[in-house]
């Protein structure tokens, strides 16, 4: 596996579409509302309308669909797993298929498809938001959403800072792990063959240096931040105060409206 240098979490693709320009706070609030709607939907027709709405949003975002589909790959297994689980183990209704003790029954098929659809829509909607939101904007959005929780002493700023740093360092650490893996392979290490225990043990030459390096980087970074006067969220300002515009209200209202409409038709 090479070529991890450019990958960031969520694979954000810069752009200038409506979705790209929406304020991250508006986008996250909208996303939460839509997800809530998704869990209230009880019929397939509800999913159909939701899917239609997603399609419109997707097209307007002008993301390359190949790239989008690639981002879905990791969740594919979970989707298939859910499907199989429900097909095999949810019982009731007509029996479609039988093999020894295994049966596939009507309720299983129904529930399986239903759950899978919900999962897919959930994932694609979230992916659409992450692909059109830069990591830093995303972190800002999270910080905003966590603000009400301050009364419960939830450190919103710190969590957002941690997210930003994690996002910033994921490419670096991936690159590093790639490098260490190759360095050990050059010394004859074998990460590919053997049974699971052997493989786990063979990972030691990769994991030890990776941890050491992560700690060293963390240490370096902490020193660099401290030397630039970082002292937590208090009295901190932001270069770009994000301005909520009419567009953002419109975005949130649209999401609300659509969610409501779909839920009402689909419950």
């Amino acid at each position: 596996m090479s070529g991890m240098r450019s990958i960031t979490l969520g694979h954000y693709l810069p752009g200038n579409s409506l979705l790209h320009r929406l304020d991250p706070r508006a986008k996250l609030v909208g996303l939460l509302i839509l997800i809530a709607a998704l869990f209230l939907i009880r019929t397939f027709s509800g999913f159909f309308y939701f899917g239609l709405f997603f399609l419109i949003a997707f097209i307007s975002s002008r993301l390359p669909w190949r790239y989008f589909l690639r981002g879905l790959k990791p969740v594919l297994y979970i989707v298939i797993f859910t499907l199989i689980l429900h097909f095999l183990f949810t019982k009731g209704g007509r029996v479609f298929w039988r093999f020894g003790v295994l049966t596939i029954e009507e309720n299983g098929v129904y529930l399986g498809s239903f759950m899978t659809l919900r999962l897919i829509l959930l994932v694609v909607t979230t992916l659409l938001v992450t692909l059109t939101t830069s990591p830093i904007a995303f972190a800002d959005g999270i910080e905003f959403l966590l603000r009400p929780l301050r009364i419960f002493r939830v450190p919103g700023h710190e969590i957002a800072m941690m997210m930003t740093i994690a996002l910033r360092f994921i490419p670096t650490l991936m690159e590093e792990s790639d490098k260490i893996r190759k360095a050990q392979m050059a010394r004859g290490a074998d990460f590919e063959s053997g049974n699971i225990f052997r493989r786990a043990r063979n990972l030691v030459p990769l994991l030890v240096p990776l941890f050491v390096s992560a700690f060293r980087r963390a240490d370096d970074l902490a020193v660099a931040m401290e030397s630039r006067c970082y002292r937590g969220g208090e009295n901190r300002t932001k270069m770009r105060q994000r301005q909520i515009t009419g567009l953002d209200y419109l975005g949130v209202f649209t999401a609300c409206g659509i969610a409501l409409a779909i839920v009402l038709t689909g419950v």
Binding site: T164, D220, S227
Partner: peptide, 13 residues
């Protein structure tokens, strides 16, 4: 202060 490793002192994205 500016350090040796440019990667370990950049904070933002």
């Amino acid at each position: 202060l500016v350090f040796q490793n440019p990667d370990n002192q950049i904070v933002a994205t």
